[in-house]
């Protein structure tokens, strides 16, 4: 069984579970976020309002980092020298700070929704 089949099967399972049927595979704007020396590059992400956005995070440090934001209600570990995908939005205009939970003193950033 290939990955997409597993994914579809599993997704249907979850969908049945919560009776929500909208898993959109449509193209979503994608932005890149890089982690280097426990810093976010760029540290300010600008995204359009009321639009779902896919953030692809590349961790260029050898150590893992956790992307976290209480305002965005997101939390995700990115392994060292790895990448991860986080979907956010659609969001109201405003500022949504995020930080790296493992190195919160340096890894700080903000999502600005316009």
């Amino acid at each position: 069984m290939n990955k997409s089949k597993v994914r579809i099967l599993l997704s249907q399972l979850f969908l049945c579970l919560i009776l929500v049927t909208n898993s959109s595979y449509a193209a979503v704007p994608e932005i890149e976020l890089r982690i280097r020396d426990h810093l976010f590059f760029p540290s300010t992400l600008e995204i359009p309002a009321n639009q779902k956005v896919k953030i692809r995070i590349f961790n260029e440090d050898p150590t893992p980092e956790e992307f976290e934001s209480f305002e965005l209600n997101r939390e995700k570990i990115i392994v060292g020298n790895g990448q991860a995908v986080v979907f956010i939005g659609p969001l109201e205009p405003g500022e949504y700070p995020f930080f790296g939970e493992f190195y919160p003193k340096t890894a700080q950033g903000v999502v600005v929704v316009k």
């Binding site: 997704s11 909208n22 959109s24 779902k52 939390e75 995700k76 995908v85």
Partner: peptide, 17 residues
């Protein structure tokens, strides 16, 4: 939490805060 994680992965639809 399960719902939140699936939303984050875009496996289930977004719902407003």
């Amino acid at each position: 939490q399960a719902v939140l994680l699936l939303t984050q992965a875009d496996w289930i639809s977004y719902s407003s805060t």
